[in-house]
């Protein structure tokens, strides 16, 4: 796990890039509306969801390409190592270095835009869990289109992220109206763990297929 973290940390473009893009979107989005209009808050939620979706795609695009092309996966399989563990560690590294900072930035910007003005911790965890769900789904997409261009993976995987977006929408509403936001957070946390495990197992199966 540490080695994956270390490897990802060396490639600054791969982890700093998504964070910068996210902050740019967050800053640039009010420019399209006049600053004093009331619907700044309501439109903020949809912008937040869409930019999370996009960032999940950017950060997971080609996450396995490098190890696939230079033969590390082949060597790992021949040594009897498990692909599932490799995928698991890679995704954990990207959660720590990309998803969590983005959740933090998302929270700060939603406070700045007045979308969230209470139970900040719950909101932070909620955004982080949604990031985990979206990242593991798009990692599955990038495993499908390992060296075939990412568009193929995104098309086949985007429908799976729809329920996650609906769940997250409900979560944001419950945050602002402060009704049952705790159990929605638990629901989000549960689904994120299950999605993460299932999809990293699926990624390892698909990568094994590509190697044959």
């Amino acid at each position: 796990m540490i080695t994956e973290l270390f490897k990802l940390f060396q490639r600054t473009r791969d982890w700093l890039g998504p964070i910068l893009i996210f902050t740019m979107i967050m800053i640039a989005f009010p420019l399209s509306l006049n600053i004093y209009s009331a619907d700044l808050i309501s439109s903020f939620e949809s912008v937040l969801v869409i930019s999370l979706l996009m960032i999940a795609f950017i950060s997971c695009d080609g996450i396995f390409n490098e190890d696939f092309l230079d033969g590390s996966f082949e060597m790992l399989i021949s040594e009897g190592g498990s692909l599932f563990q490799a995928v698991f560690e890679k995704l954990c590294a990207s959660f720590v270095l990309i998803s969590f900072p983005i959740a933090l930035a998302g929270l700060l910007f939603s406070i700045a835009n007045g979308a969230i003005n209470q139970n900040y911790m719950i909101a932070l965890l909620g955004i982080f869990f949604v990031n985990i769900i979206l990242n593991s789904i798009f990692a599955f997409g990038s495993a499908i289109s390992l060296n075939k261009g990412a568009i193929l993976g995104v098309i086949s995987v985007l429908p799976f992220s729809m329920p996650a977006i609906i769940l997250f929408g409900r979560f944001l509403d419950s945050i602002s109206s402060n009704i049952s936001s705790i159990n929605l957070l638990q629901l989000l946390g549960g689904t994120s763990i299950i999605t993460f495990l299932i999809f990293s197992w699926l990624c390892s199966r698909i990568i094994k297929l590509h190697i044959e």
Partner: peptide, 16 residues
């Protein structure tokens, strides 16, 4: 059995 396969590809990380 502990086995190892070394093929044509070079699993060396360029950024390290």
């Amino acid at each position: 059995i502990r086995k190892l396969y070394l093929g044509h590809k070079i699993p060396i990380k360029d950024y390290l």
